[in-house]
């Protein structure tokens, strides 16, 4: 009889046996998993602090094993500033959606980035408000239907999608900015490596880092999970190209 070899262990960053409350096909569960793996590989699970935004990302509170708090809608950048300044040795990350980070929390997001606060932002961009039922986000694509843009996003009336990584890349202080996705196993590994790198930089005291993860929202996009992936690759990646914007404090052109 062949010897059994353990090839996969679930990260201890997620409560044992817990099932996430996320919709089928949603990438939040994958992202929670790779955050746990990244922190675990760095030996930081017992030093990890999560600041959660409001929205679907808040559902993660019953799923993770690390210390965590919930910020008021949009204020994760401010709350994380207070935590990191008061407990500089903790590994602090915010977990925010696009409505939270790019609409109501724009001032807190940009100001924390501009100060070069030494924490990590994990920004989940699916182009729509999820938990409240599919309203337009700053990141909603032109023409995309939402419950508050029933005829599709019209630039004349609603403006254009906001590119947060590109906007933050205009600032001098941030140390590391990368946009990734989780649509394929390769991209999941890339995303995990990006998160791990951001955490490592924080532990080294390098300053602000943001990992933007472009994802799908099958439920509110009104598409099944596989069609969502097609839309993600075809439309979202076209608007939000994946790649490294800055690595190591140098502004990459």
């Amino acid at each position: 009889m062949a010897e059994e070899k353990k090839v996969y262990t679930r990260t201890k960053g997620i409560i044992e046996g817990a099932v996430s409350g996320f919709c089928p096909g949603c990438m939040h569960s994958t992202i929670h998993k790779i955050i746990g793996e990244a922190a675990e590989e760095l030996g930081q699970l017992d030093n990890l602090v999560r600041v959660e935004g409001v929205g679907c990302c808040g559902l993660g509170q019953f799923y993770v094993t690390c210390d965590e708090t919930i910020a008021a809608h949009g204020r994760a950048g401010a709350v994380a500033t207070g935590i990191k300044r008061s407990s500089p040795n903790s590994l602090v990350y915010t977990y925010q959606g696009d409505g939270d980070l790019a609409a109501i929390g724009l001032a807190e997001t940009l100001s924390a980035a501009n100060r070069g606060e030494n924490f990590t932002v994990i920004f989940v961009n699916n182009g729509i408000y999820g938990m409240t039922g599919g309203q337009m986000a700053p990141t909603t694509l032109v023409g995309m239907k939402s419950t508050t843009t029933p005829g599709g996003r019209d630039p004349q009336e609603h403006g254009y999608p906001m590119h947060m990584s590109e906007i933050i890349n205009q600032l001098t202080a941030p140390y590391y900015i990368e946009r990734v996705s989780c649509d394929t196993p390769q991209n999941v590994i890339k995303a995990r490596n990006a998160i791990k790198k951001a955490f490592k930089y924080q532990l080294e005291g390098k300053g602000y880092s943001i990992v933007e993860i472009v994802t799908s929202c099958p439920t509110n996009w009104g598409l099944d999970p596989l069609k969502s992936l097609d839309f993600l690759r075809e439309k979202m990646f076209a608007e939000y190209p994946l790649g490294v914007f800055r690595d190591g404090g140098e502004k990459k052109q």
Partner: peptide, 21 residues
């Protein structure tokens, strides 16, 4: 540590974060 917040909203939320430690 002193932070000049970008607004009162940000400042009070920084306080929330700091006090929670």
């Amino acid at each position: 540590s002193f932070v000049q917040g970008e607004s009162e909203v940000a400042s009070v939320n920084m306080l929330y974060g700091a006090a929670s430690t």
